[in-house]
């Protein structure tokens, strides 16, 4: 799984970031093209944010990331912005599932010490992940991912998984 190891800059948000904040329903009404929608990523909480995102950045949040609507575009817009993983204290379950199904890595770990801009390294170990904050040297263990989710992630998302297995096993 080491091909999935990641290195990037922390972009930090707080608790209860709902999917409407990730991408507003009114934006999604205009288009489903993520390359356009990514310009409005996190618009309701920080209108200046989207313009500062660089590919490889890592989203970091507190509790209940992705709560609210189950809209899957919230996960795919994050990916379209070049962000490959979200670290949060906890995730809302629909967002967690949608992330995995699209190959966006959700890492449930203690994020309380991570500051905006910290360089983070994410390494896979067994069915879990380890996050290192290179500013502080602190390490946090990510919660284990259930085997079926790991299989979907390894396939690259639910589309390639279904194509490969012809169903859900």
């Amino acid at each position: 799984m080491s091909a999935m190891d990641l290195h990037g800059r922390a972009r930090v948000f707080g608790d209860n970031i709902n999917t409407d904040y990730i991408i507003a329903s009114t934006r999604k009404r205009e288009t489903l093209d993520e390359s356009v929608l990514k310009r409005y990523l996190m618009e309701a909480v920080d209108p200046a944010f989207a313009a500062t995102v660089q590919p490889g950045d890592l989203l970091v949040a507190g509790r209940n990331f992705g709560c609210g609507s189950a809209m899957e575009i919230a996960a795919t817009v994050i990916l379209a912005a070049g962000i490959r993983a979200v670290l949060a204290r906890t995730f809302a379950r629909t967002f967690y599932r949608n992330a995995i199904n699209n190959g966006l890595l959700p890492i449930e770990c203690d994020t309380s010490a991570i500051r905006e801009g910290d360089p983070l390294r994410i390494a896979f170990a067994g069915d879990g992940m380890e996050v290192t904050d290179e500013r502080t040297g602190e390490r946090a263990a990510g919660r284990a991912v259930p085997p079926i989710m790991l299989a979907i992630l390894e396939a690259g998302g639910l589309v390639p998984y279904i194509r490969r297995h012809g169903g859900i096993r």
Partner: peptide
């Protein structure tokens, strides 16, 4: 739709998922 849980009032298990899970269920 996340509010699919509403149907649980009828003594059934109803849960919200995303579009990809629904697509997989439509097929399988």
């Amino acid at each position: 739709d996340s509010h699919t849980v509403t149907c649980g009032a009828l003594n059934l298990f109803a849960t919200g998922v995303g579009s990809s899970d629904v697509a997989a269920a439509m097929i399988t």
